[in-house]
């Protein structure tokens, strides 16, 4: 089944990271970058970050809050949370299947 983030091409994965990052509260661009780097171990480039933010915002999965100084925080919307939840559940099933098969192979 297609979900809004899987339609984002090369921005699908960064978008998923951003949604996860925003799921515990609003963050601005720099905070998202450092959070994603801490979660995944690989840095998110600024061009990729803003390409993904623009797509998520346009699809109503996140929304911009009033700027604080020059930094603008973003927060996940209800639609974004639902989408993220569905996608993580899908990934969880995928991971379970993979691990089960690996276990079967090991035996």
């Amino acid at each position: 089944m297609k979900t809004p983030t899987t339609e984002l091409g090369r921005f699908a994965e960064p978008s998923l990271y951003i949604l996860v990052s925003l799921s515990d509260g609003p963050k601005h661009g720099y905070a998202i970058m450092t959070d994603v780097e801490a979660m995944t171990g690989s840095p998110l480039g600024p061009g990729t970050l803003y390409g993904a933010l623009a797509r998520l915002e346009r699809r109503g999965l996140i929304e911009a809050l009033p700027p604080e100084d020059r930094r603008r925080p973003y927060r996940i919307t209800g639609l974004g949370a639902t989408t993220l939840s569905a996608q993580l559940a899908h990934l969880e099933g995928f991971v379970r299947t993979g691990l089960r098969r690996l276990g079967g192979t090991a035996r």
Binding site: H28, G29, Y30, G45, P46, G47, T48, R70, R72
Partner: peptide, 28 residues
């Protein structure tokens, strides 16, 4: 986005890889 991206780049000076990423972002 320019204001907030400029603020981000002020906090985190871009590496050469980031510059390439920004170039790709502009093309996109």
């Amino acid at each position: 986005y320019l204001d907030e991206l400029s603020a981000l780049l002020a906090e985190r000076p871009p590496s050469s890889r980031d510059r390439l990423d920004l170039l790709g972002g502009a093309l996109d």
